[in-house]
Design a binder for these strands. Sequence first.
DNA 1: CACGAACCGTACCGTACGGTACGTATATGG
DNA 2: CCATATACGTACCGTACGGTACGGTTCGTG
Lengths: 216, 216
Amino acid sequence: MSVDTAEPSEFSPRQNAVLEQALRLLVDGGEKALTTSGVARAANCSKESLYKWFGDRDGLLSAMIAYQASKVRTFERNGERLTAASLHDHVVIFARDLLEVLAGDVSLALNRLAIGQSNRDGSKLGKLLLERGRRQIDRRAMALIDAGKRAGLLRFSDADEAYHTLYGLIVSDLHVRMLLGEPGLKDTARQAERAVTAFLRLYGTDKVLAEMPVLG
Amino acid sequence: MSVDTAEPSEFSPRQNAVLEQALRLLVDGGEKALTTSGVARAANCSKESLYKWFGDRDGLLSAMIAYQASKVRTFERNGERLTAASLHDHVVIFARDLLEVLAGDVSLALNRLAIGQSNRDGSKLGKLLLERGRRQIDRRAMALIDAGKRAGLLRFSDADEAYHTLYGLIVSDLHVRMLLGEPGLKDTARQAERAVTAFLRLYGTDKVLAEMPVLG
DNA sequence: CACGAACCGTACCGTACGGTACGTATATGG
DNA sequence: CCATATACGTACCGTACGGTACGGTTCGTG
């Protein structure tokens, strides 16, 4: 039940390999397939080592989340000058990346795992998942729309509110539907484009709106 | 396209009482607390009756979803004449109701349950939850925005797309956050108001936009 | 009242999981 | 070459769950 999060090389290579196998088991068979014996067998390690490294089953689950989060790296934007067109493109890319991440096997499996246990353990895993898994993508988006504001392309008083609006426009109820087992989105590109168009129509300044097609 | 659902009194009163207790157990202690023995004890019935009525544990879970869905009734709109103000008010009320439903104890517990099992049983429960639990609210919203269009207050080509936009604006990532155990929304009224304002700005005709405050 | 169906309470069975203990192998360091 | 630490594989234990069986009880019906 460790709480502190040391970013660099949180686990040994051997432990990472074990966590990788555990994630694979989880993705393939859901939480029920994720038994300590199963993980030990799949990773060719002993249960005793599992308990030594991760404490107990919950510790293993937390470690899986931390490990997966550490794998996702989002490149920071460079300080290039934003135009209406480039802002649009960047936001579209962000939208597509977001949808792709949320629709990923491992992401869905971990979210299902955390949600399934969230009203039993005081939502410890849920917190972890939100903090570790979401921070990167949130920061990227906030930096983007902040840059848009500084370039006089976006207008808003509350950046957090604007970001949540963007998020809702992009994701809608897709995430929950996928978590419930519905087959993935058909046309993510179109969905991303629609969302960004709506977002810019809501928060874009005249400089942006001037370059957008008229409604209808 | 959808499975036929025998609406009236799907279960006997006794069975409904049992399902009520089962839901209570689920809400209080999560899926782990929902054991067949526990349900039998809480509802003062025998396990044998449980298996006779619902087949097996999955049957019980499905019955719980069906029962809960049958309890939620959304009054149909009457054909009153819509104005810009009344459309706004109706959509705000819808938004608040939607947030309230999604934040409800039982709804969250059932969604967690279905999500937790969704990659094990072929998402049978997830399908059931989406079809039974969502249809009512979807129909209500579609009827509302359709009426708005017929009254010349809204403009869109694809009603489904417009509805999903509205849904995303209202819910954003709140549903998933709550499913992950985050404490509920502070100010649902404000959230609903913001969402509806944005929605009307995107899809409202001049008749609606004329009555809205200028941006900023 | 008698009969049968439905149902309750409990005891029971097989299984499978989380967690622990132990004997063995491999590697590292003096 | 030995000593120590680390980790593997397996066997084991207690527990708790899903599902079944059975005797006793209530209740509706002729």
